[in-house]
Write a protein that binds this DNA or RNA. Structure first.
Length: 834
RNA sequence: GCGGAAGUGGCGGAAUUGGCAGACGCGCCAGCCUUAGGAGCUGGUGGCCGAAAGGCCGUAGGGGUUCGAGUCCCUUCUUCCGCACCA
């Protein structure tokens, strides 16, 4: 008998699917659509098992939904711009384009090798002008709407990348790609997108995603947006009639307890404030010291609070009190107003600071119940809400009421107002890099900043020969690119030489899949209306904040431009776990990468697919194990042997009249097989459809195979029609997970004319799954004491009688008083004795 | 500190959501088959007591609800992930 030959089988069916255009789908409003999307890869190095797991989960979903009769779009493309390509150019002299295209070829070859059911006609690559044309187009639309703007700002500079990093690319104060390189501040003119304009909506609309997105992703996004309600209060500076300091506080109710203002060391007013103060030189020195902040987050969190008195005072507008102005290393310029009021009695940080520097610690809030705070014995800040004391006319109010009233009063008296602020910052998109989308802006000496007109798009990346990795923007060294004419006056002008953050590319790519070759617009709104939003998105948790927040922002901008008619781009999100080896995620730098292609050459891709689905639930991390994958390989061999052993005899057998008729005059063996097959079908369907428990679905299929095996020889007591029904069910259920083997089995079972690409998912027949005899667990006081086999569907009374009259049970019950009997039909009888 | 997830055999994990804990697989043990086996087949495999029948214990710890708890409630602990001096 022929052995299972995965290499031959997989090649054969992949060729067939290609020839059949099996996975191509065009918009068809008469059909219900389903959009399955996996996060597009950055084509670098090798495609490893981490990628493989992501695409396998997506492919199972796509194939299952197709079998359910949905019109499935399942595309793939390349996130092709980015720093590794440029780094390769710098280090090895390969042009980023060449490096990228080579990698794409290799990734594509491997994806084909795995038989993923993509519609390759929709393939996109973000480094092609046909694609980034529309990045530029979106940028210009945002410029028109005031969403894109330019400002000088202090940004994170990585000396190794020689580029600016987004806040999100800074990890522990270091570059996300160079974890040992602290970022340095640098002030440059940069392009920003006003994502903060959508902060409230980005937060609010998370409620729409509650049923479809993982809770932790929602939590991370909420956290990142960081909405805070509070009050902005202006403190006049004593002796400076024209100067005031604004603070933001969420606890204006504690303002009578202010014993100082604390400014961030970089606060712009500081130089003016300290001018002319005694000890000016010492203060300047202190400032310089504080400005050299620690960069590692862990160090910052544990760093001791430090600060100094500036020699100036401010006036508390609520009570006219003079309070000292300090500088503190723990006050952040970027958050709120860059200045905070110091209320030591009711804020932990302020307490620590005030204690260290001997500042006053007035108590202005008392707990509404329990022990009152004693100013002489305060050992920690009391941060909870309570009742106001020593607070002028607000004394006696609760914190809640005071916050409301004091905000109103501050506004009425002209020194403050209620305000909501966000932690979210505008998105800086300028990068001093070559391998990205050129920003379509021209600077003219006469006209100033001039957008490139739509008709001149795309602004194409010029060819460049040498990449040094030094300096700022590589494009600045290409005169043919830089020097141009002003679209407004025709005079000499210079092009913007920065390129866009690649997160721009990935913010809308899956809209382009709906209409990938449009050269008049980013996409046809009609096609997008049919295919979008994405029904199921699958990717890594690493993108929980950046990519998924940006793409949500883009969707809202596109909606406001009238291009799309929905608020959220992704209905359901699934974040799969990592693939680990030796306990850590596979990565080139750790040297623990298992290449997907090597794995497929060794075991066959169906085995690899099965293993990644079986070894762990999809949301959990998965430890790579050669031994366990061999177990999966054995299972598939076993299936192949089992089916092919019987296939010849079943080839021409027809299962007519519906599966349910097979039950008529069925032998016990047949009943066992039909029952098992349909019980498994019911649960596998549920596992695929609603639970995403691929691992337990596979376990069930293993049980079915074990059962068929146990009923051998099938020739003895099993009609061919029954055997065929059972084998076909097995084959169809395996199809989403191991499609090549499944196709092969389907063919040897006599279906040589068709493929399973669009086969219907089998229909569950309750009558076939029903047991006619069931095992009832008999408990006494909740402890299992025996089991009885009875006909299915007995009434509670019948079951109770059978249980208590069972010889073993009745013996145990002798002399006992029965208090009550709980009966769960077809399952259990629990006799409760006194 | 805040937020999220999770704690079940030697290991990965199941338990269809309150009804036989450990399905399925890996590993291990014994046997069969084989020139050979990193192939195949059969059986066993949570712990303790017992020759066996059987009994007791057992889902991180403690308490509770219930006829019945891995599952629900309270509480303590531990691990992982994200954010982190956010006023």
């Amino acid at each position: 008998m022929a052995e299972y030959d995965p290499q031959a089988i997989e090649k054969k069916w992949q060729a067939r699917w290609n020839a059949d255009h099996a996975f191509e789908a065009d918009a068809d409003p008469s059909k219900p659509k389903y959009y399955v999307l996996e996060m597009l890869p950055y084509p670098s190095g090798t495609l490893h098992m981490g990628h493989m797991r992501n695409y396998t989960i997506g492919d199972v979903t796509a194939r299952f939904r197709r079998m359910q009769g949905l019109h499935v779009i399942h595309p793939m493309g390349w996130d092709a711009f980015g720093m590794p390509a440029e780094n390769a150019a710098i280090q090895r002299g390969i042009h980023p384009r060449e490096w990228t295209l080579t990698n794409i070829e290799s990734f594509k070859r491997v994806l084909h090798k795995f038989g993923f059911s993509y519609d390759w006609r929709r393939e996109i690559s973000t480094c092609e002008p046909e694609y980034y044309h529309w990045n530029q187009w979106f940028f210009l639309r945002m410029l028109e709407k005031g969403i894109a703007y330019r400002k000088r700002s202090r940004l994170n500079w990585c000396t190794k990348c020689a580029t600016v990093l987004a806040n999100e690319q800074v990890i522990d104060g270091c570059c996300w790609r160079h974890e040992d390189t602290p970022v340095e501040p640098k002030v440059i003119e940069q392009w920003f997108l006003r994502i903060t304009q959508y902060a409230d909506e980005l937060l609010e609309d998370l409620t729409q995603l509650e049923s479809g997105w993982p809770e932790r992703v929602l939590a991370m996004q909420r956290n990142w947006i960081g909405k805070s309600r509070g009050t902005r209060v202006r403190f006049a500076v004593d002796e400076f009639a024209d100067t005031s300091i604004e603070v933001f506080t969420t606890r204006v109710d504690t303002i009578f307890g202010v014993s100082g203002l604390i400014l961030a060391p970089e606060h712009p007013l500081l130089s003016k404030l300290v001018e002319g103060v005694a000890d000016h030189a010492a203060i300047e020195e202190n400032l310089q010291k504080l400005r050299r902040r620690l960069t590692r987050a862990a160090d910052i969190a544990t760093a001791e609070k430090e600060g100094f008195f500036t020699g100036r005072y401010a006036i508390n507008p609520f009570n006219g009190e003079k309070v000292p102005i300090w500088v503190g290393n723990f006050v952040l310029l970027e958050y709120g107003t860059g200045a905070a009021m110091c209320v030591p009695a009711h804020d932990e940080r302020d307490f620590e600071f005030a204690t260290k520097y001997g500042m006053a610690i007035p108590i202005v809030i008392q707990p509404t119940e329990g022990t009152q705070l004693d100013p002489d014995r305060l050992i920690a800040a009391h941060v909870e809400y309570g009742e106001l004391v020593n607070s002028g006319l607000y004394t006696g109010l609760t914190s809640e009421k005071a916050i409301e009233k004091m905000s109103c009063d501050a506004e009425a008296r002209g020194f403050g107002k209620g305000e909501t602020i966000f932690r979210l910052k505008d998105w800086g998109i300028s990068r001093q890099r070559y391998w990205g989308t050129p920003i379509p802006i021209i600077y003219c000496e006469k006209c100033g900043m001039v957008p490139v007109p739509d008709k001149d798009l795309p602004v194409v990346l010029p060819p460049m020969a040498k990449f040094s990795g030094l300096g700022e923007s590589p494009l600045a060294s290409v005169p043919e690119f830089v020097n141009t004419t002003c679209p407004a006056c025709g005079g000499p002008a210079r092009r913007e030489t920065d390129t866009m953050d690649t997160f721009m590319d990935s913010s809308w790519y899956f809209y382009r899949y709906a209409d990938p070759h449009n050269n008049k617009a980013p996409f046809d709104p009609g096609l997008v209306r049919y295919w979008l939003p994405v029904d199921q998105y699958i990717g890594g948790i690493v993108h929980a904040i950046l990519h998924l927040l940006y793409t949500r922002f883009f969707c809202k901008v596109m909606r406001d431009l009238g291009l799309v008619n929905h608020d959220e781009p992704v209905k359901r999100l699934f974040t799969q776990g990592l693939v680990l080896k030796g306990g850590t995620a596979m990565s080139k730098s750790k040297g623990n990468v298992v290449g997907a292609e090597d794995m497929a050459d060794k075991f066959g891709c169906d085995t690899g697919r099965l293993y990644t689905l079986f070894a762990a639930p999809p949301e959990k991390d998965l430890e790579w194990s050669e031994q366990a994958i061999e177990g999966c390989s054995r299972f598939l061999q076993r299936v192949y042997r089992l089916v092919s052993k019987h296939a010849d005899g079943l080839k021409n057998v027809q299962v007519g009249g519906g599966a349910a008729t097979l039950l008529d005059s069925a032998t016990p063996k047949e009943k066992v097989l039909l029952r098992k097959a349909h019980q498994v079908l019911r649960r596998v369907t549920h596992d695929f459809d609603a639970r995403w428990h691929f691992n337990s679905a596979i376990a069930l299929l293993m049980e079915l195979v074990n059962e068929i095996h146990a009923q051998e020889p099938l020739e003895d007591g099993v009609r061919p029609e029954v055997a065929k029904e059972v084998f076909e069910l097995l084959t169809l259920m395996l199809n989403p997970m191991v499609p090549h083997l499944s196709e092969e089995l389907w063919e040897i079972l006599g279906h040589s004319h068709e493929t399973l690409a669009h086969a219907a998912w089998p229909k569950f027949v309750p009558a076939l799954a029903a047991e006619d005899e069931v095992e009832i667990v008999v408990q006494i006081k909740g402890r299992v004491k025996g089991k009885i086999f009875v006909a299915a569907g007995l009434t509670k009374e019948e079951l109770e009688k059978l249980a208590v009259t069972d010889s073993k049970i009745s013996h145990l019950l002798e002399g006992q008083r029965i208090v009550k009997v709980i009966v769960v039909p077809d399952k259990l009888v629990n006799v409760v004795t006194a």
